[in-house]
Structure formats: structure tokens, C-alpha cells
Computed example of a mutant assay.
Amino acid sequence: MSLHFSVLASGSTGNAFYIGTEKHSLLVDAGLSGKQMELLFKNVNREIKNLSGILVTHEHSDHIKGLGVLARKYKLPVYANEKTWAAMESNIGEIPTDQKFVFTMGSVESFGNLDVESFGVSHDAAEPMFYAFHHEGRKVVLLTDTGYVSDRMKGVTKGADAYVIESNHDVEMLRMCHYPWNIKRRILGDFGHVSNEDSALALTDMIGDNTKRIYLAHLSQDNNMKDLARMAVKQTLESKGFEVGDQFDLYDTDPKVPTKLAYV
């Protein structure tokens, strides 16, 4: 069984990502309740008790809501950078010291035959970071919750077999929505979230010959729609010469329904 993954949940109501090999598996973020997380794992026929650990991207509640519950119940090690640990500890309850590990931003940690490379993003959190996963020449990238995709991020993430990338909002929908202006400004700013068009433009510099799957993630429930996001990204990529549906496929993600296990 090769490198495989599922976007268990994605959106402002909660985020969770599962990835594994035949020997080791990881959960990235646990942004839903413990019960909901257990149901999501059941839906993809996986067991939380078999995880090698939980990685944390940042301390926002839609990424850590069920973290403490799962860590304590299943005695799982938790990995986050020092600033994220400091920012989230009061919100997750006590975690035994022997389950707490520091994963320094910009470093690589190995979980058996699964190597995980961390990289920083631009978001309004203490020290947000996301991950590129490597196994036997295969690469899967998880990249959401960033106001823009820098050249440095593109360098780390380039040429992956699969991407789970933020496509948060349609700019015009956001501008016209009921949100207060300060919230709109946050989302549109450099420390907010990437739009459909900006996600596609970033992908044009990241997609490689091995890229086969792209998952559009963290869609706003108020300012985006699955069909709209997919169409906007498809149009932009095709305008840059990519053949969507031939070179690679685009997939949706959902706040409550996990994606089918994908193998790369």
C-alpha cells in the first residue's frame, strides 16, 4: 500500500487531514469534536488508535477543537512548533509531557518510512506552518490558511503528486457579503486566506510532471461554492496551458464528508 490520504474535513467549521503508508499514519489537525473525528475515521475505514501522532498547523479553533480529547483518549504524541504550543495549550487541556513534541518550522521529521517537511505560511496565528509528506519518491502537499503563496512556499511544494490547497473565497462574493469590513479586510489581506484565482495562479508555479490530484480546500461556506471554485481554478489553469482532466484531476473537499482514500 503506497502513500495514501484523505481530507477528512475542510472548512471554517473544522479541519482534519489523514495521511499514511503501509506502516505509519498521521493526523494533521483535529478541528472537530472527538466524536466527530471518530466518525470521520470510521468513514474511511481507519483507526485513530493506529496513528503515529497528530501534527498541528496552528492554534485556531477550527484546527484544534478535538485535539486534546483525542491525544488523551488514545495516548497519541502531538507535534507543533514552540509558539503554537504556547498559543494553544490553554485551549486543549492538559497533555502529558511525554506526549508533547516540538516540530520546528522548516525542519524534517521522520515517522518510520514517512518523512514530513514543515514550512511557514502567512496567516494571523502565532507561527503557522504546513507540511509536505514524502514516501518512496512520492510527495503530497497540504497548504491552506495563508494570505498568499510565496516563492519560498512554492519551492518547498513544487512537483508534488497531490496537492490539498486552499481555495477559500470568490473575491466578488466576499466583497458583497454581509461580513463587517474588518473581517473582509482580514480575509483579503496577506495574513488571511487565498482566493480561487490566487490559488490557481500559485498552482501554475507548483504543478509538476507527477502531479495527478489537486484538492480544493478550506472553501468558505458564505463566500464560495464548490462548482464556482472548481470552475475558477480550472479556467485559470487552462489559460496557462494546463490540461485539467488530462494531466491531473480537480477534486472538492467538504466540511463534513471525507474524501475517498487516494493513493499516490
Rank of each mutant, 00 (worst) to 15 (best):
N50C: 04
A202Q: 01
V116N: 06
N91C: 10
N81K: 10
T236G: 06
E117S: 10
L188I: 00
R213D: 13
F119D: 04
Y251C: 00
T204W: 09
F17A: 01
N210E: 12
N196I: 01
M206Y: 04
L8R: 06
T144F: 05
T84Y: 14
I207N: 05
P128S: 06
V7R: 07
L76Y: 06
T236I: 15
G192F: 04
E38A: 14
N196A: 08
T204Y: 04
G112F: 08
V44I: 15
A202F: 10
V44C: 09
K23L: 03
S25T: 07
G34L: 05
E166M: 09
Y251H: 05
N81T: 13
K240M: 01
V141M: 04
L70W: 14
K154W: 10
T144Y: 02
V257D: 04
Y163I: 04
G155H: 07
M173R: 09
G66H: 13
T84R: 11
H60S: 14
F17G: 00
Y79M: 02
A262W: 01
C177E: 04
I19E: 04
D222A: 13
G14N: 06
E89P: 15
T157Y: 09
L250M: 07
D29E: 15
R152I: 03
T97I: 06
S52Y: 02
F101Y: 11
L76N: 02
I187L: 01
C177G: 00
K154A: 14
V56S: 03
C177I: 00
F130Q: 13
E109S: 06
D222V: 15
S122H: 06
L27M: 11
D115N: 07
L32A: 08
E38L: 04
L26N: 07
L142R: 14
G53F: 11
L219I: 08
R230C: 15
L32I: 12
A125Q: 08
E238N: 11
P96D: 06
L39A: 15
K49L: 10
G208C: 07
L216M: 00
K184M: 00
H123L: 09
T104N: 14
G34I: 06
